[in-house]
Design a binder for these strands. Structure first.
Lengths: 331, 331
DNA sequence: CTGTTAGCGCGTTCAG
DNA sequence: CTGAACGCGCTAACAG
């Protein structure tokens, strides 16, 4: 393995000089910089990230903390898009990411988690979908030991940023659009909400309440827990009485739609997320589409900024509306 | 951060002694071992993996090289199951994994890839779905610089193992089962094969040929490229003339089935993989189910064995048959 | 069985 | 602007 020492010898300079051009220090003359870079190219030298980390006490490693439920297809897709977006951008930013599942740190204390990350010399963490009840994670955020970026959770402090799409606006938009496109006046709206302690659930709820007030709709809110089955059952109970059914996720929208089919009634249904799976379910509905890969990429940029010494901030990512339909062929 | 030096001082022993109990060396008395462990517990010491890696020249880091196509839902699911299986087992084995996509190393030379992995001090690699045309990867395998485990590719050498399910047998089984369950005698079988250069494609093809010979079926083989669209078009052309359609993937089976529906004819269709997505597509068919998470976990154990000095070997993982059907509700 | 010592490859003072 | 020297936390010979 070719090391910085070899480069120094080859270029006829000292080790520290090589290190300086490597790390873009200001005080190096163009002439020696050129010599060093040539030596690097000739030898095919790549800095040893491990040694650099040990020496500088900064690893540039960030952990992707993700909530994978192996039971749910839709979750797979969302997680995968998050992961691929994050990992791709990480390469560009020259950060090193490792993936950690929520399940691996459940029933661990704050101290254990901190030590785990420290032993891995991780200095940045991106948490996807922390919910209100993840108390240990909240403690971790408050401890400010690591640079943290929260996706879809609204906590900020000096070393914590959050990035998310405006859930309220997205939910508002998709309902408004659906109603405007509809042919007859809607009166009663059934809203099937997401998991109770998820921050996104609250934002989306506010969105549907806002549009309901504006359009003078009578709203029934039920707890769907992001479960297709729950959404189905709720629809069987209350779907008949509603003029429009709005769900806080595409998966629940599938459940609702299937229930309506069984009941042989038709009402428009709104989803949320914009997952490909919808194309296979053979149904049409409007949805608020989130670009998960872009969100994750943005989160990585944010953690990179924090690692460089930046302050925590809030980042809002845009959303789009989409009419999902039966796709004859996906690929 | 509490270091090994602190522990040594606290326990009243030398640094190297602490290192020895940490790494389970044989020559330490029970008494001092106890002292050291107590000191470790009291101080909450966690070894710094980075320093250990630099010193020992062994990182215990393995790269998961995976072929993610963000276009395909089915691929998402398979990749995600691979990843989650691998990562979970990695934690248990105390290995550190990073995820790398094929797209990140495409158009890189062998040397560049080697240097990349070396700079990351990776010493094991698991490659999911290397195909015959990935020449650079083949070179990487042959160089034997890293301990490599190939999932679904049949190369072995001193530092390379492969783990896979018996594709031939699985394909044989699912066709045999489907025909046995059928009510009338089948004569003509349409086989829609996978990507030409994928090793699994060849195995599955042998399987279908074997069963065809046994049952005296007339086989037409067409190239489906693992594409739903291609399978659809092939079925539109040749589906009418066949008595049974066998596809090398579930996604192609969906395409074939939809084509049959459009043509308003019915023939049994076989899939391959056993992905959840099928439940949403609203169709019934037999499939050979692979447990991707288990395969990935097995691959990790295998790479761990190689890192410990083991020789490369072939590992066959079992498969199951499954009747996929329209699932009213997944979760 | 235990302690001493020399690096691993790099970043970072501080003289020159 | 450059280079010698030290140390990051740990492992691995080698002495004792």
């Amino acid at each position: 393995m070719v090391s910085i020492k070899d480069v120094a010898k080859h270029a006829g300079v000292a080790i520290s000089t090589v290190s300086k051009v490597l790390n873009h220090y200001p005080n190096v003359s163009e002439a020696t910089k050129k010599k060093v870079n040539e030596a690097i190219a000739e030898l095919g030298f790549v800095p040893n990230a491990v040694a650099a980390a040990l020496s500088s006490k900064q690893s540039g490693r960030v952990a992707l903390l993700i909530n994978l439920s192996t039971q749910r297809q839709a979750i797979d897709e969302i997680s995968m898009r998050y992961l691929s977006g994050a990992i791709s951008r990480a390469v560009e930013l020259n950060l090193d990411v490792i993936t950690v599942f929520f399940s691996m740190i459940r029933d661990k204390t704050r101290e254990e988690i901190i030590r785990y990350f420290q032993s891995q010399s991780i200095d940045g963490i991106i948490i996807f979908g922390m919910s209100r009840e993840d108390t240990v994670l909240h403690e971790l955020v408050e401890s400010q030991i690591f640079k943290i970026v929260l996706v879809d959770a609204p906590v900020i402090n000096a070393s914590t940023s959050c990035v998310w799409v405006d859930q309220e606006q997205a939910q508002y938009d998709v309902v408004r659009h659906t109603i405007r496109m509809g042919s007859y006046p809607y009166k009663r709206l059934l809203y099937i909400a997401g998991k109770k302690n998820a921050y996104v659930t609250e934002g989306r709820l506010r969105g549907v309440e806002r549009i309901a007030e504006e359009m003078e709709l009578e709203v029934t809110v039920r707890d769907g827990e992001f479960s297709e089955l729950a959404a189905r059952n709720i629809t069987l109970e209350e779907g008949e009485a509603a003029d429009i059914i709005v769900c806080a996720s595409d998966l629940m929208a599938i459940g609702a739609m299937r229930a309506l089919m069984d009941m042989d009634v038709f009402h428009p249904v709104c989803g949320f997320d914009g997952i490909t799976l919808m194309g296979y379910a053979g149904m049409q509905m409007n949805t608020a589409k989130q670009d998960f890969a872009a969100i994750a990429a943005r989160a990585l940029e944010e953690v990179n900024r924090l690692l460089a010494g930046g302050e925590g901030e809030e980042v809002i990512v845009g959303h789009t509306l989409e009419r999902l339909q039966y796709l004859d062929i996906i690929c």
